[in-house]
């Protein structure tokens, strides 16, 4: 049971990073269906950087801090570049967001597969640094196991989600960002640089989503590359809807998603086929939430009003 919860948290934080990034992006009015591709690219860039770093310094020369910082930086950078690509097409060239996002996913999956094919698919050495936990965590019983035994990225994910929630709701930048996503014409008239906000939100959002991909490989899978990062990406998008665009709610939501996703493995007495049905659950609950919010049609808990729409000031 304890292992189940611990793993639910580990997988959940992958979703959490992915969805927090996507939430930031969507709050700016961008529906980025390229997130799965972005997470792939993020994960592969991180792995690639780790590979290069280890190659350069050898096993003895590894600095544990750098072994984490370098992949994280590479991931963030690689994913943010994907964000720039998305923004260039949708903000600067004003192309349809759905089409761009889907193309970005195709492209991103290709790029990441290519990078991984070129390097290595086992990163267990690097993974050791990512999963290293506080030394005394083991001594604190179930409490330590559940809350303190995780690798650093798990806490980073939590911190990012809380920080995002705070920034969105309590700061000027968050207010401006939400205005851009709700009603860009109004934000523009209020003197907010819509393009700048959309570019930065999408790049930062993509960067954070990308970290989710890295966490998935380095922490949850203990450094074994698997070609299913994009499936995780779609679930991250689902999670955004499931938690009605609230990163703080997403902390709970992500753990629920993680639990649903792996539940079948930990509950005895289920056949392999039933497990596949269980994996369906996150999508089904998302559909239910989507239906529920649209039926209630409250002004609260709705997607940002101009989600998916590009903005052109001189439109008549």
């Amino acid at each position: 049971m304890l292992t189940f919860l611990v793993n639910a948290i580990r997988l959940g934080m992958t979703f959490l990073l992915g969805s927090t990034g996507e939430t930031i992006t969507e709050k700016s009015g961008h529906l980025n269906l390229g997130t799965p591709g972005v997470m792939c690219v993020g994960a592969s860039c991180g792995c690639f950087a780790e590979y290069i770093y280890f190659d350069a310094v050898g096993v003895i020369g590894i600095n544990p801090v750098l072994a984490i910082l370098i992949p994280v930086a590479a991931t963030f950078l690689g994913s943010a570049l994907m964000g720039i690509l998305f923004c260039f097409l949708t903000v600067t060239l004003r192309v349809n967001q759905n089409v761009t996002g889907l193309a970005l996913t195709t492209f991103g999956v290709g790029v990441s597969d290519y990078i991984i094919d070129k390097t290595d698919i086992i990163y267990s050495l690097g993974s050791d640094y990512f999963t290293a936990s506080l030394p005394f965590a083991q001594n604190l019983g179930w409490f330590g196991e559940l809350f303190l035994s995780h690798g650093i990225l798990i806490y980073v994910a939590l911190a990012i989600a809380l920080l995002t929630s705070f920034v969105l709701n309590k700061t000027k930048v968050g207010l401006h960002l939400r205005a851009v996503g709700e009603n860009p014409a109004t934000a523009d008239a209020a003197g907010i640089n819509v393009s700048l906000y959309r570019y930065s939100a999408t790049c930062i959002g993509c960067g954070i989503s990308g970290l989710g991909g890295l966490l998935f490989i380095m922490d949850y899978l203990n450094g074994n590359w698997e070609y299913c990062v994009d499936a995780i990406g779609w679930l991250a998008i689902a999670l955004v809807i499931f938690t009605v665009w609230k990163p703080n709610l997403a902390i709970i939501g992500s753990i629920i998603f993680g639990a649903l996703y792996i539940m079948s493995t930990y509950i005895e007495g289920f056949s392999t086929e039933t497990k596949e049905i269980f994996k369906m659950l996150p999508y089904i609950v998302t559909v239910i939430v989507l239906l529920f919010t649209s039926i209630r049609d409250k002004k609260k808990n709705q997607p940002p009003q101009s989600l998916g729409l590009n903005y052109f000031r001189e439109e008549r």
């Binding site: 000027k172 207010l175 709700e182 009603n183 003197g191």
Partner: peptide, 18 residues
């Protein structure tokens, strides 16, 4: 009107303040 529907009055007024 250039107002954000889901914001309250104060939030709309401070929007874009420098």
């Amino acid at each position: 009107f250039k107002l954000v529907d889901v914001f309250n009055g104060v939030e709309n007024i401070v929007l874009g303040m420098k």
